[in-house]
Simulated assay, not measured.
Amino acid sequence: MALLEVKNLKQHFITKKGFLSEKTIIKAVDGVTLEIEEGQTLGIVGESGCGKSTLGRSVLRLVNPTEGNVKFKGQEVTDMTPKQMKELRKEMQIVFQDPYASLNPRNTVRQILEAPLIIHKIGSRKDKRDIVENLIDKIGLRKEQLSNYPHEFSGGQMQRIGIARALTLNPKLIVADEPVSALDVSVQSQVLNLMLDLQQDMNLSYMFISHDLSVVQHISDKVAVMYLGKVVEIADVENLYKHPMHPYTQALLSALPIPDPTQKRDRIILEGDLPSPANPPSGCPFHTRCPIATKECAEIVPNLEEKSTDHFAACIHV
Rank of each mutant, 00 (worst) to 15 (best):
I131F: 03
V59W: 01
G74C: 12
I112N: 03
A2F: 05
D260V: 04
K10H: 08
I234D: 01
S254L: 09
T66H: 04
G18T: 08
T33A: 01
F13C: 05
K86W: 13
D221E: 08
T33H: 05
P261R: 12
K86R: 15
Q111L: 00
K126Q: 15
M1D: 13
R89E: 05
P257K: 02
P171F: 00
P105H: 04
L113V: 12
P99D: 10
V237H: 10
L60I: 10
G74Q: 09
P179Q: 14
R165K: 07
E76D: 15
E233M: 06
K138H: 10
C284R: 03
E144F: 07
V175F: 02
D310M: 08
D212Q: 07
I131Y: 03
G49W: 00
R61N: 13
L270Y: 09
S220N: 11
E22I: 10
L103A: 11
N279C: 09
L141A: 04
P302I: 07
G43C: 03
I112C: 04
L253T: 11
I258Y: 11
K230G: 02
P280Q: 04
S102D: 07
I219E: 04
L117M: 10
S220M: 11
M195Y: 05
Q200F: 00
K230S: 05
K83L: 13
V216N: 02
M207E: 00
K16H: 06
K52M: 01
I268W: 02
Q40P: 14
E305R: 12
E5D: 12
K71N: 10
V215E: 08
E271C: 13
S181L: 06
I139Y: 05
N69G: 09
G31L: 00
N64P: 11
D177G: 02
I300A: 00
F153R: 02
R106S: 11
P291T: 01
I112T: 05
C315Q: 03
A164Y: 00
M226H: 04
V215Y: 01
A314R: 08
S220Y: 09
I136R: 00
I131V: 15
T81A: 05
I219P: 14
E296N: 14
M80P: 15
